[in-house]
């Protein structure tokens, strides 16, 4: 491959400041049938060829509707799944090829924060033990006292009170549990955190608290985030760049401002136009692109462009093949053969 000449979405930026590169990542889950002899009958193409990169200190937002493959992408980066195909290159090393101790060392640098602040914490462990466990596992503290100090420090930086260390998860509110999850992720001094819908389960007044915390920590500890969410307003606030996923593919990838102000993929436009704005006067002036129908099953994605079945501007050619992500203007990537076909009276948000 002539990677040097062709820019790809993974090699957008100077190699120097890239922390993570995801290249042609595919994650298929086999669907089996039969009770005794399990036979593979099909694949769920949860992630079907995804390419992007994240710079050091940056937040890349990953948005899309449920089932489009966001969590699977995150889990494949974390090596919780062995990808069907493709590469995950972190600090220059291909994680898909690492073994044993090399992998364990890498694991420390990549952490995750989950959506569900209820399910993701062990109910039988105290808050302090949950936060401190990674310290023990990775042997990061050398004495009881040092361990206690570090746990207190972690609780403090995430806005919890060190005296809460002896309490159990059920004694905390949703927002506080999310803080515990964040403190635990920070315990090992990671450089990269996959935040998988970290505020989706929280009430709006609490969401803002957690988002501010994540931003403060990023600044303080020089963190890089992959921020997965379905709330486009939150993603606009927190991300430097945003990738939009649909049915296992990234359909658009651009700088935050560019993506929100000049969306080119019809799916991005529809998604943005569907996001409600809390102001009836503004709402009354917006036109909506109401998509018809439901998202097709990733087990049986439509041929050609996966979006063509719901696309308001699809033409016959859209049924031939899935368009590649192409760079239509500097750092603005879109996978649509008609991306330039807008602005001819097409209603937008």
């Amino acid at each position: 491959m002539v990677q040097t000449q062709n820019r790809t979405a993974a090699s957008t930026t100077d190699a120097g400041d890239v922390l993570l590169e995801v290249k042609d990542l595919k994650m298929y889950f086999p669907v089996t049938s039969g009770i005794i002899f399990q036979k593979k009958v099909a694949d769920v193409k949860a992630v079907d060829g995804v390419t992007f990169s994240i710079k050091k200190g940056e937040t890349l937002g990953l948005v899309g509707e449920s089932g489009c493959g966001k969590t699977t992408t995150g889990r494949a980066i974390l090596q919780l799944y062995k990808p069907t195909e493709g590469h995950v290159i972190f600090e220059g090393q291909d994680l898909t090829k690492l073994k044993g101790s090399e992998m364990r060392a890498m694991r420390r640098k990549i952490q995750v924060i989950f959506q569900d602040p209820y399910g993701s914490l062990n109910p039988r462990m105290t808050c302090g033990d949950i936060v401190g466990e990674p310290l023990t596992v990775h042997k990061l503290t050398s004495s009881k006292g040092e361990y206690r100090d570090r746990v207190s420090e972690l609780l403090e930086v995430t806005g919890l009170n060190p005296y809460m260390a002896d309490r159990y998860p059920h004694e905390f509110s949703g927002g506080q549990r999310q803080r515990i999850g964040i403190a635990r992720a920070l315990a090992v001094n990671p450089s990269f955190i996959v935040c998988d819908e970290p505020v989706s389960a929280l009430d709006v007044s609490i969401q803002a608290q957690v988002i501010n915390l994540l931003e403060e920590l990023q600044e303080q500890f020089d963190l890089t985030y992959l921020f997965i969410a379905h709330d486009l307003s939150v993603v606009r606030h927190i991300s430097d760049r945003v990738a939009v996923m649909y049915l296992g593919h990234i359909v658009e990838l651009a700088d935050r401002t560019e993506l929100y102000e000049n969306p080119l993929h019809p799916y991005t436009r529809a998604l943005l136009s569907a996001v409600p704005i809390p102001d009836p006067v503004v709402e009354a002036q917006r036109t909506r692109i109401i998509l018809t129908g439901d998202v097709p099953s990733p087990m049986n994605p439509p041929p050609g462009c996966v979006f063509h079945t719901r696309c308001p501007i699809a033409i016959d050619d859209c049924q031939i093949e899935m368009p590649e992500l192409r760079e239509v203007s500097p750092d603005h990537w879109v996978a649509c053969i008609r991306a330039e076909g807008w602005n001819e009276g097409t209603p937008i948000a």
Binding site: Q207, A208, I211, E215, R236, I277, D279, P280, V281, V282
Partner: peptide, 30 residues
């Protein structure tokens, strides 16, 4: 939405990022 007059309503409206707003430095949570 345009003229909220209870501090809670005001707080709720201010704490959510809006799609049509330029990014704030940080959100104003309750």
């Amino acid at each position: 939405y345009r003229n909220p007059s209870h501090p809670y309503t005001l707080g709720l409206l201010k704490s959510v990022p809006r799609l049509d707003e330029v990014r704030k430095v940080s959100l104003d949570p309750i």
